[in-house]
């Protein structure tokens, strides 16, 4: 279960160039040549199509959520928002405990993101810059865990949670995802390159304890990667479906559990379902609207440095 929160972020392997220590970082930050060329009209046309393709389903969610069941199923389909949005949102909100779901998911995703970042940075630091017996074997183990399908251990896990008394409790969803193999690997890759070994050594010579080094040397350097990892983990945790569906009951759901309930029949109104989908996605969309630029920058930075 530790693996299913591994976001699909590429930690790009080094290009096969002869390493030029020292020069490398500076070189990579220099913009590529393509950037100097201006995009032509065709570029804008293709990008517009891509943006439309990306945004239209979301736009249509809004349209569907704001009309009525009958209107959605008529031809031609509606393309402009109707006036039922508030009503449908209210229906979706009450029918599947959406209020509880939103609060739960904020708590779960927030806790998981914080813990993953903390533990991944600690472990990433150790793997990248500290020397200890069995380091490579342990790191291989971490990476190996990424390949385990998340569905693999669900049955014993559920029994375990029942034994602890966490069935239908949020810790059942939080605890297994407190760490992530991807996170450890991501931070390790980042710190291996971004944190000059000399800096660590210098601090060490000054007699600094390794936790002190972590606090004063590692954290400042790691901060951008930590932000990216935290954001990715938050999104991933927010969207997690399989395990929460089994661990939680419908009276204490996460957003995705509530949504899959909406999608499985018996809910009278399609537009209410779409309103639910909108409600469950809205917080992340708001996050993207406000922090979009930073998130994009973070992902790209993570990709290069990772």
């Amino acid at each position: 279960m530790t693996t299913d929160t591994a976001p699909r972020l590429a930690s790009v392997p080094e290009p096969a160039r002869p390493p030029r220590p020292g020069a490398r970082l500076r070189l990579r930050l220099r913009p590529g040549a393509g950037r100097q060329m201006h995009g032509g009209p065709l570029t804008y046309l293709v990008l517009t199509v891509a943006a439309l393709f990306s945004l239209f389903p979301l736009y249509w969610t809004v349209v569907a959520a704001s009309t009525s069941n009958t209107r959605i199923t008529q031809t031609p389909p509606p393309f402009l928002p109707g006036s039922n949005l508030a009503h449908n949102l209210k229906e979706a909100y009450t029918q599947v405990h959406m209020g509880t779901a939103l609060a739960n998911t904020f708590l779960v995703a927030g806790t998981v993101a914080l813990a993953t970042v903390l533990f991944a940075t600690l472990a990433g630091f150790a793997f990248a810059k500290l020397e200890f017996t069995g380091r490579n074997v342990l790191l291989m183990l971490v990476i190996g865990t990424m390949m385990v399908p998340p569905q693999l251990g669900v049955v014993p896990l559920f029994m375990l949670m029942s034994d602890i008394g966490w069935s239908n409790e949020l810790p059942a969803v939080i605890m297994p995802t407190l760490v992530s193999a991807f996170g450890v690997f991501f931070m390790r890759q980042y710190l291996a390159e971004a944190l000059p070994t000399e800096l660590v050594e210098a601090a060490r010579v000054d007699g600094a304890h390794s936790l002190r080094i972590f606090w004063h040397v590692v954290l400042p350097v790691a901060r951008p990667a930590m932000a990216v990892l935290g954001m990715l983990t938050f999104v991933q945790s927010w969207n997690d479906l399989f395990w929460p569906m089994i661990a939680l009951n419908s009276d204490n759901p996460t957003v995705q559990v509530a949504l899959s309930q909406l999608g499985q029949g018996y809910v009278p109104d399609r537009s209410v379902i779409m309103a639910g989908a909108l409600l469950g996605t809205l917080p992340l969309l708001l996050l993207f609207t406000v922090l979009g630029k930073q998130i994009v920058g973070g992902i790209m930075q993570g990709a290069v440095k990772g």
Binding site: N104, L118, I174
Partner: peptide
């Protein structure tokens, strides 16, 4: 930090 996370979770889950 471990306890904090655990209690935070438990407190709000129930």
């Amino acid at each position: 930090s471990a306890i904090l996370l655990a209690t935070l979770a438990t407190a709000c889950g129930d």
